[in-house]
Nucleic acid binder design. Structure first.
Lengths: 160, 160
DNA sequence: CAGCATGACTTGCAATTTGCAAGTTAAATT
DNA sequence: AATTTAACTTGCAAATTGCAAGTCATGCTG
């Protein structure tokens, strides 16, 4: 008992609750892009990712915001832009992302050099500390350059 | 090159691939029940969990089997029963489950005593070693007694 | 051994959720 | 002033979920 009734939960199990919040095909990918690719804007998620539809993207951003995982702030320079950032609750998902990375890399044929991922797995605490440091200091350098060279449809128009 | 085309993948990113396989609301709950509650049978998942529909349960079991995460074996004693078990690929999801547990417990109001979860988080490697040991030795004792007392809707028919 | 119970699923729909494509609105740019 | 750009909506069609009920082999019981 004690749990607030707000969003419908299937049970009080923490695992189940976590999945109620971000247990779908897209949420954690958005969080990944915020965490390790230095993305902040709607169009970045839209064009450089795995091809998410804009209505789904808008929906997921709202849900993640409602869940306190990300925040939205207006950008002073260009008032059209909305900047999305991870909250502390959001950056605390770093271990989950790292485990998904390690598992996928170990058990499926993925585009990530196994050696690098194994090294990350071996230095787990250091990696997590570094991820958090970047978040705290708002260091925008992408953590994983090899993830940035994505194999999804590039789909970008060439701008001059 | 590299990746096999088999199941449609949104990209070659390992995180994305992992989510393509078990990124939904139910798969990881089934895996949790196999891993820490000692469940093996269809009805166990069906009745003692968060209220999964039987058609969804059947579908998820098939997908997890197709993905090589679980196996199915007939039980000699009672030929009606099918026993599901985690493969090594499946037990390798233990870190993910543990992280979901820790995150949910830390950031949401869940039914798990925080103290215990914090202790598990602090002794992460030991917990993971123990989970694997139980799997290797087919030790059926539930790992988490406090998870077994589930708070989901009982939804039992008051069958006499 | 007839009859009921059990385990593991199907089947049939209705209600959601997803996935496209196109449209909208406000704020820069040219 | 006209065009772009960013961030979203809207309108459906298609796929997925959820619910209730039904099937079909066993297994158990009187």
């Amino acid at each position: 008992m004690g749990a607030k009734p707000g969003p419908k939960r299937r049970s009080g199990c923490p695992v189940s609750i976590s999945l109620d919040i971000f247990g779908d095909r897209w949420s954690l990918l958005i969080i990944r892009d915020l965490m390790v690719r230095g993305f902040h804007m709607f169009t970045e998620f839209e064009t450089a990712g795995e091809g998410i539809a804009t209505n789904i993207l808008a929906d997921r951003l709202q849900r993640l915001k409602a869940a306190g995982i990300i925040t939205e702030e207006a950008e002073a320079a260009d008032r059209r832009c909305v900047y999305y950032r991870l909250t502390e609750k959001g950056i605390d998902l770093a271990p989950v992302l790292l485990d998904l990375l390690v598992w996928g890399s170990r058990h499926e044929e993925a585009d990530a050099p196994c050696a690098i991922v194994q090294k990350m797995a071996a230095n787990r605490d250091q990696v997590l500390t570094e991820v958090r440091r970047r978040w705290e200091q708002r260091d925008p350098t992408p953590l994983l350059p090899w993830l940035s060279g994505n194999a999804a449809r590039p789909k970008q128009k060439k701008k001059k």
